[in-house]
């Protein structure tokens, strides 16, 4: 187990390095200029913009800029944003709580819906409940989050006027009122993300449980005279959930990706909206850092999924 972990971590390093090279090259090839807005402003002479470009090292060759970035990164210096001149790590840390709160809640919501619905549907395959659950799951993961997001805003904010659609990180209320406001503004984004995830999880859970429920040991358990509840919870679900757990771990980075759009729509000050505004402003150090964080998340969650799998299912050995 120990050597396995060390080996996997060592493999992760070159892949992260490769990812950073690709990201940097793509960003360098992409058109755009962080000081673009100054170009159309007649009050700012072009020399000012050229001097700024030179000062921030944008005019140097790509490989030079990459090695400079890499060397700084190794020492834990993430660079500073061209747009705000603030250190990138400060910016990311500022945005992290909102993202974790919204994504965490939506994951909990997704699992809270998917597990009972998926299991119940699998124990009664092709029943009315199963049909309905399947249909909704299908609709749920076919609708992209940007669409459901806008739909929710239209219905709950504009027509019904129940919920605010601008997420605020600074709520001035205190005590219970603070919690209430926090929940009210988080309902829509959490629902949008949570329902989308719940839909795909439901289908995974259902098929995983269906696979297990037909196996001989389940029949044996039933033949022993165990109650239906014990059979399902102790024998079926414990085995069926092994692939689901891995799946949830593997889905985590995707969830961060999906949140980019949702964060933009609801103005949640999270990492995703930071990435979008950085891309629009051609703020290379921020784009680099955020995408690199995403890359690290993908690699880490892959590793976590593999380790979890082996831990849950002792038949799988670490080699």
């Amino acid at each position: 187990m120990g050597t396995y972990l060390v080996r996997r971590l060592l493999i992760a390093l070159p892949s992260l390095l490769g990812i950073s090279v690709v990201l940097f090259t793509v960003l360098a090839l992409a058109p755009g200029d962080p000081f673009e807005e100054m170009a159309t402003n007649p009050n700012i002479p072009p020399e000012v913009r050229l001097a700024l470009r030179e000062k921030f090292g944008i005019d140097d060759p790509v490989y030079l800029r990459y090695f400079r970035w890499l060397a700084a990164m190794m020492q834990g210096d993430w660079g500073f944003s061209f747009a705000s001149r603030v250190d990138v790590d400060t910016l990311i840390l500022q945005r992290l709580p909102a993202t974790i709160f919204v994504i965490g809640s939506s994951q909990i919501l997704a699992l809270a819906i998917a597990l009972p619905v998926g299991i119940y549907a699998a124990t009664r395959p092709y029943s009315i409940f199963d049909q309905i659950a399947n249909t909704f799951a299908f609709i749920g993961f076919s609708l992209p989050t940007f669409f459901t997001g806008l739909l929710f805003i239209l219905v709950f904010s504009i027509w019904l006027d129940w919920l605010p659609f601008v997420y605020r990180s600074d709520i001035s209320a205190t005590g219970w009122r603070w919690y209430w406001e926090q929940i009210r503004q988080a309902i829509m984004p959490v629902m949008v993300l949570g329902l989308f995830q719940a839909a795909s999880y439901t289908r995974y859970v259902r098929s995983a449980v269906l696979d297990v429920i037909r196996l001989d040991f389940v029949t044996t358990a039933r033949a022993k005279g165990l109650g239906e509840k014990t059979v399902v919870v102790r024998h079926v679900v414990r085995n069926a959930l092994i692939p689901v757990v891995t799946l949830v771990a593997l889905q985590m980075p995707t969830v961060f990706g999906g949140a980019i759009v949702t964060e933009q729509i609801f103005r949640i000050p999270g990492i995703g909206s930071l990435l979008i505004s950085a891309i629009l402003a051609n703020d290379t150090p921020v784009i680099m850092a955020v995408t690199f964080v995403f890359a690290c998340l993908v690699v880490t969650f892959n590793l976590i999924a593999d380790v979890l799998y082996g831990w849950l299912d002792p038949r799988i050995a670490f080699r």
């Binding site: 805003i153 504009i158 605010p164 659609f165 933009q264 729509i265 103005r267 000050p269 505004s277």
Partner: peptide
Amino acid sequence: VKGGGDAVSAARAVIQT
């Protein structure tokens, strides 16, 4: 002063809601 999002939804937040 809150930031983020797009112009249309900003207009909505002021004019409509």
